[in-house]
């Protein structure tokens, strides 16, 4: 879009405006109250309104000032790190700590340009053992070593 001259400002402004609107919308039923007896909606709505105003100014800068677009966005890194972390959350109680750890290591490691299966597998196994020994046995954190999915 050609009217956007500084994408970083334009989209940042847009994000802040949308977030502000979302918070106001969510807070619509919380009860605004009065300045003397503030309801649960008072402070969030005031904050969101200021956020929207600042967002507008930042957004206007985005069409008024020229600046470079964001550089070097890594979709691969973002996706793999996020997916690995989410999967850890799913696996840690269902399959157990070692499986979750190994899965997170293997998935996130693929994001690197210098990814190589062999050292990654060694790391995954090593960390899985380390986490079980240190966190479950030594520190006694209540995490399953073998989850229900593995018959634990």
């Amino acid at each position: 879009m050609s009217f956007i001259r500084s994408p970083k400002d334009f989209y940042a402004g847009l994000v802040f405006i949308l977030v502000g609107i979302a918070f106001i919308w969510l807070a619509r039923d919380y009860g605004f109250g009065t300045a003397r007896r503030m309801g649960p909606g008072y402070f969030p709505i005031v904050l969101s309104s200021i956020l929207i105003c600042i967002g507008l100014v930042i957004g206007v800068r985005g069409v008024a000032v020229t600046d470079a677009p964001p550089q070097g966005f890594t979709f691969k890194g973002l996706a793999l790190v996020t997916f690995g972390t989410l999967l850890f959350g799913v696996l840690v109680r269902t399959a157990g700590v070692p499986v979750a750890t190994a899965a997170l290591v293997c998935i996130s490691a693929v994001a690197s340009q210098r990814f190589n299966w062999k050292p990654t597998l060694v790391l995954a196994i090593g960390l899985a053992v380390f986490c079980v020994v240190v966190f479950v046995y030594a520190l006694g954190l209540p995490m399953p070593v073998r989850g229900p999915w593995l018959g634990g």
């Binding site: 972390t85 850890f88 959350g89 840690v92 997170l104 290591v105 990654t120 790391l123 960390l127 954190l141």
Partner: peptide, 30 residues
Amino acid sequence: YHLLYPAILVFCAIGVFSLNNSDFDVYLMA
């Protein structure tokens, strides 16, 4: 670094999980 950051991720994930023993917290961190 390419072997370091997966390990850091594991420690972050375990740390956050152990706050309340809640997988929800791990999703929130992501």
